[in-house]
Design a protein around this nucleic acid. Structure first.
Length: 557
RNA sequence: AGACCCAUGGUGUAAUUGGCAACACUCCAGAUUUUGGUUCUGUCAUUCAAGGUUCGAGUCCUUGUGGGUCUACCA
């Protein structure tokens, strides 16, 4: 077998390549994504998912999905299903079944016993406050617990009785016996097990003692034979404990490597804050398109490929980073430009009447739907009704344009109606307030799209919808949820002070009839406006569309 | 303040591990365009500071500066 090791693209892969070259673990690479099933996945998780799964894929390895469910108080099964859905949607399939740290409770308990037997763990009767007190300070060594020197026999007995349910919550914990003066506070006799007489979402009442993160995560990695355990920077200090436990327990040496989590402008990734947005009714739910959750971005219409590209292209390093919103949106547009079919919808309609067009005539034109891709022009398909009365965009009309380079509707202008005719604008009617109520124009009968013999040239092209055949659309125009790119970074102000009051505008729009077939999740480009995705709230009679991302506009009028 | 981590255009990431600092996004300008979209071309802009090693330093060393993380019976 001649194995070629792929070239490393970042420092984590450099470590992996190094391990591979040294023949470590027999050339095996095994990563994992270990969410806690107590909330919804967000863009930050997406980054971790992409890193873990892509590395697994790249180096011929495997990636597990493991629920880090060691705290019965906060975890629920329905989150598990959600996480699985999000992962599949993102485009990843994990190795085998979904795994659970709680499946290892038995082994973990044995590990604890092993530690006790080695004199490396003890049962402590101190209270939470006392333990915090003993911990010392950042520049003050801690002090030993009065229970630190219990005999192995006594520790074993006490721990077994903890498990048997003889003691109430909080009365005892199991602690590792390391060094109360260690510069890394995590090694000052960390708590390994706590008593919680609570039912667990999977193990039910089988246990009343539960391991803490530091005594569950690394051990789960070991049990699963994870070779590279990738996590975010804030776990750096845990690595010392992670390694200490591997040595003490003499178990499979998984290697923890930390990378910087991804931050994105205008998006928050704090579970607690996300929850607050939902609970205070600031957003419609966890899947509100303004949320940085995967569910929200899915509903907004972000293609999974765009998210993967975004995560991949922003790289993997150890420095704090703040990604620009523009880059996220660029990745979304890039994918959608290649994949979204094109339709016309008028978001802010005003009536346009073609005075020289027969009143009862309806013409079926053809429109280009598929986007033009390299080498193949846009395909022409699907009928598009045209008539005397049309809806056009209010902002596409100006009574007296100031800019000489304005090419859209205005008195005296010739403008192309996309896929239809060129028209000559004669003028408009307005109400007492000067608001335009109708635009009048004539059309050039020989200028029909596809066989234009009129000789008329129009600089501008606008979208439109035939009044009689138009269907009603509810269009939800989403904007950024916050007015500040980093609402969490203000020590003196709460992030809720930066809520964008106009992050959602609901529009009564007019769409071409073909749009009636839209299924929830379908994304289209509304010509000249943006990409819109059909929302589950829509009904057959009245589709609802969410703004996924707007088109860029080079117009600086 | 102790330990640990980090520092390259506006943002993010590269630089064959000591050999002409580049790519993407953004901005701006132009070409093409029946979407003021896409595509194409071009412009502006970068190594935290000081010292040292070296023919040569973004890269190695020292000191400093700035930022981050850590004192939950959460993960």
């Amino acid at each position: 077998m001649t194995e070629r090791i792929p070239e490393a693209d970042n420092f984590i892969e450099e470590f992996i390549v190094e391990d591979l070259k040294n023949g470590k673990h027999g050339g095996r690479v095994h990563t994992r994504f270990p969410p806690e099933p107590n909330g919804y996945l967000h863009i930050g998780h997406a980054k971790a998912i992409v890193i873990n799964f892509e590395i697994g894929k790249k180096y011929g390895g495997k990636t597990n999905l493991r629920m880090d469910d060691t705290n019965p108080s906060t975890e629920e099964t329905h989150f598990v299903t959600n996480i699985e859905n999000d992962l599949r949607w993102l485009g990843y399939e994990w190795e085998g079944e979904t795994l659970y740290a709680s499946d290892y409770f038995g082994e973990l308990y044995e590990f604890a016993l092993r530690l006790i037997d080695k004199g490396l763990a003890y049962v402590d009767d101190s209270t939470v406050e006392e333990i915090a007190q003993q911990k010392g300070d950042i520049d003050r060594p801690g002090t030993n617990s009065p229970f630190r020197d219990r005999s192995i026999t006594e520790n074993r007995d006490l721990f077994e009785r903890m498990k048997a349910g003889e003691f109430p919550d909080g009365s005892k914990v199991l602690r590792a016996k390391i060094d109360m003066a260690h510069p890394n506070l995590l090694l000052r006799d960390p708590v390994l097990y706590r008593i919680k007489h609570e039912a667990h979402h999977r193990t039910g009442d089988a246990w009343c003692i539960y391991p803490l993160y530091d005594f569950a995560h690394g051990q789960s990695d070991s049990i699963e034979g994870i070779t590279h355990s990738l996590c975010s920077l804030e776990f750096r200090h845990h690595r010392d404990l992670y390694n200490w436990l591997i040595e003490a327990l003499e178990i499979f040496p998984s290697r923890q490597i930390e990378f910087a989590r991804m931050n994105v402008d205008y998006l928050i990734t704090s579970k607690r804050k996300l929850k607050k947005l939902v609970e205070e009714g600031i957003v419609a739910g966890w899947d509100d398109p303004r949320m940085g959750t995967l569910a929200g971005m899915r509903r907004k219409g972000y293609p999974p490929l765009a998210l993967r590209n975004f995560c991949l292209r922003t790289g993997v390093t150890k420095r704090d980073n703040q990604q620009e919103y523009d880059l996220l949106e660029h990745n979304v547009r890039e994918v959608l430009n290649d994949t979204a079919d094109r339709y016309m919808a008028v978001l802010d309609p005003v009536k346009l009447v073609l005075t020289n067009y027969p009143a009862d005539q309806v013409e079926m034109l053809t429109a280009e739907r598929q986007p033009e891709t390299e080498g193949s022009p846009a395909l022409t398909e699907e009928a598009l009704p045209f008539g005397k009365e049309l809806w056009v965009e209010r902002e596409d009309y100006q009574k007296e344009p100031q800019n000489r380079k304005y090419f859209r509707l205005a008195p005296g202008k010739d403008v192309r109606l996309k896929s239809a005719y060129i028209i000559h604008v004669s003028g408009h009617e307005e109400d007492a307030d000067g608001v335009v109520t109708q635009i009048n124009a004539t059309y050039y009968p020989e200028s029909r799209s596809g066989n234009d013999t009129s000789g008329v040239s129009a600089k501008g092209t606008i979208h439109w919808v035939a009044v009689r055949e138009a269907i009603d659309l509810e269009v939800r125009e989403y904007d950024k949820l916050f007015t500040d790119p980093t609402p969490m970074d203000h020590e003196d102000r709460d992030f809720l002070e930066f809520i964008n009051p106009s992050s959602l505008q609901i529009l009564a729009a007019k769409g071409e009839p073909a749009l009636a077939k839209a299924q929830p999740g379908d994304t289209f480009q509304f010509l000249r406006k943006g990409y819109y995705t059909a929302d589950p709230d829509g009904t057959p009679g009245k589709p609802v569309f969410n703004l996924t991302v707007g088109l860029k506009s080079g117009w600086k009028g």
